[in-house]
Amino acid sequence: MQKITTKENGVSWIQVTPLAIILLGFLIAPLLVILTVSFWEYDIGGMYPAFSHVNYTEILTSHTTINLYLRTFKFTFFVWLITLSIGFSVSYFLSFCVASTTWRIALFLLCTIPFWTSNVIRMIAWIPFLGRNGAINQGLASMGLIDQPLEFLLFSEFAVILTYVHLYTLFMIVPIFNAMSKIDPDVIEAARDAGANGWQIVRHIIVPLTLNGVALGSIFIITLVMGDFFIVRVMSGGLSGSVASAMYNEITGLQYPAAAANAVLLVITVVLLVSVILRFVDVRKVLTE
């Protein structure tokens, strides 16, 4: 490692200042407020400064918390697994099966087209498709494949995961594609000359070299899914929940300290998950390559 020169001390301080101010003002300060409020007491009439562990005790001793975390982890795991498979396949296709760079870029841009409309619209659009009398059920029925509509399609965990995958896959494609496109074609050529088959090339060259991209994509997916309350609420018909939807219900009842305690717990969980990923992968290296 080269030692970073600190000769132009003054200049680098100035360069760092804007980001530092933004992070302090819009990240650190609000987090501190949330942390403070999470120890306060409350009732319907207001919040009262205190140093009480009640909010945390209530959360940590309730089996609802465990259920919600388990469910959130389940959503996260499945969405991660599916987006990873899709993201890897799509990136592999773009990087190694499409020869022309122009086509590669064009096809990649095609992946982003759905993102030109809002998340909400893309989510809501699934409802008429998946409903009891929706397009899929009607199609299957008219083909004679089913005689009872498939009820699990909508207002179910299936619908929630489907929507997450649809909305978030691009967050997996972009970093993996970015990592793959940096792989020197000569390396693969050399491996082939040395007698490696297709699977061995994927296993020993492509996967290790795209691991950083996978890690970045995984961080996106984990933070997006774990922080969501809206998609899970709409697509499950309010019948399934995440950690964040419990927070939302608390905010509804003006129970800010309880919601704050929940938020602190969620931040800790997500930070732990992300730091596990970062232990395996040097994301900084990806960004400076």
Partner: peptide, 19 residues
């Protein structure tokens, strides 16, 4: 209405959602 035991209600409602 908002119930006096709103705090308990929210907790149980979250349990309902999580069930």
């Amino acid at each position: 209405a908002i119930h006096d035991e709103n705090r308990h209600l929210t907790k149980r409602w979250n349990e309902f959602i999580a069930a």
